[in-house]
Structure formats: structure tokens, C-alpha cells
């Protein structure tokens, strides 16, 4: 996906490994920010859903990472980056119902294997890059106007 610079607004949320209890608060904050910036409610909701899914994934699966929300005149970009462990099979994670979440996570209502496909469904453009041992970067764009 194309590189963009000069965001009119940027907000970053760090998510630690296993940080499940507070995961989602960053997405709620992003949502409030976008509302205040006057973004339409349907777009705000799509960004918030994708962000919440990404935040939960970072807490459940990653060794730590961050979410960056950038607002441009014509679009919103949401980037999830982590420091590992990376995804071995990128086709499998896009398959609805596939999940490696633990029983403990499922007891908390997550790990239905819908996260990654739902992020793709919510965004206008979706890009997933991952290397085992290095980390995963998900870039999602949402058109404005």
C-alpha cells in the first residue's frame, strides 16, 4: 500500500503482551477522537471495530506492539505493528473460524476466529505482512467522504 505522510492527526496506543484487561480502551479512545474530528458515524464504527479486533489480537497473540491511528484529508489509516512472534500461514488466519486462541481467552469471549477477516471486511484497503520471528504489520485504510 502507498506510503502517506503529513497526517493531520495521529494517535498511538501501545499494547503489551497479555494486556487483555485493558485491551479495547485504546479503540474506545480512537472512537472518541474520530467523533470529535467530525468523522461520520458509520466510518467511525468501522474503524473502531477494526481497531478493537487489532487491539485484542495484539494482547492475545503478540509479544507486544502498538496501534497507530492517522487521519488524512481523504482517509483514515490504522496500523497495527508488533514485535513478534509472526504468523506462519497467512491464508489460514484469513479463514473465518480459524483461531489459535487459548481456552482462557475463549472464556473471555474472544478467539472465535473472526478477527482478521472482520478487520478486512471493515476496511476499504487491507494489507497483512508477517515474518515468523520478526513480527506482523497490518495496515488498514478507510476512505473519507
Amino acid at each position: 500500500m502507498a506510503d502517506y505522510t503529513n497526517a493531520t492527526f495521529e494517535e498511538v496506543r501501545e499494547v503489551g503482551k497479555g494486556d487483555f484487561a485493558t485491551a479495547g480502551q485504546g479503540s474506545a479512545a480512537f472512537k472518541n477522537t474520530l467523533k470529535k474530528l467530525g468523522v461520520g458515524s458509520a466510518v467511525v464504527r468501522r474503524v473502531a471495530i477494526a481497531s478493537y479486533e487489532a487491539e485484542i489480537n495484539l494482547a492475545i497473540h503478540s509479544d507486544g506492539g502498538k496501534l497507530t491511528l492517522s487521519v488524512y484529508p481523504d482517509k483514515i489509516r490504522l496500523v497495527s505493528e508488533d514485535i513478534g512472534p509472526g504468523i506462519a500461514d497467512l491464508d489460514l488466519v484469513m479463514q473465518e473460524g480459524y483461531s489459535t486462541a487459548t481456552e482462557e481467552v475463549r472464556m473471555l469471549g474472544f478467539g472465535a476466529g473472526m478477527g482478521m477477516p472482520n478487520m478486512k471486511r471493515c476496511s476499504d484497503e487491507f494489507d497483512l505482512k508477517s515474518a515468523v520471528g520478526k513480527g506482523t504489520t497490518i495496515t488498514m485504510d478507510f476512505k473519507l467522504g
Binding site: 458515524s41 464504527r45 469471549g109 478467539g111 472465535a112 473472526m114 478477527g115
Partner: peptide
């Protein structure tokens, strides 16, 4: 649903 992952797929309010 008891699974929030499944609820989050419903994008209407």
C-alpha cells in the same frame, strides 16, 4: 452470543 468476536461482525447499531 457469548463470543464478542462474533458480535463484532454485526456492524449496525
Amino acid at each position: 452470543s457469548d463470543m464478542m468476536s462474533d458480535v463484532l461482525v454485526c456492524n449496525d447499531s
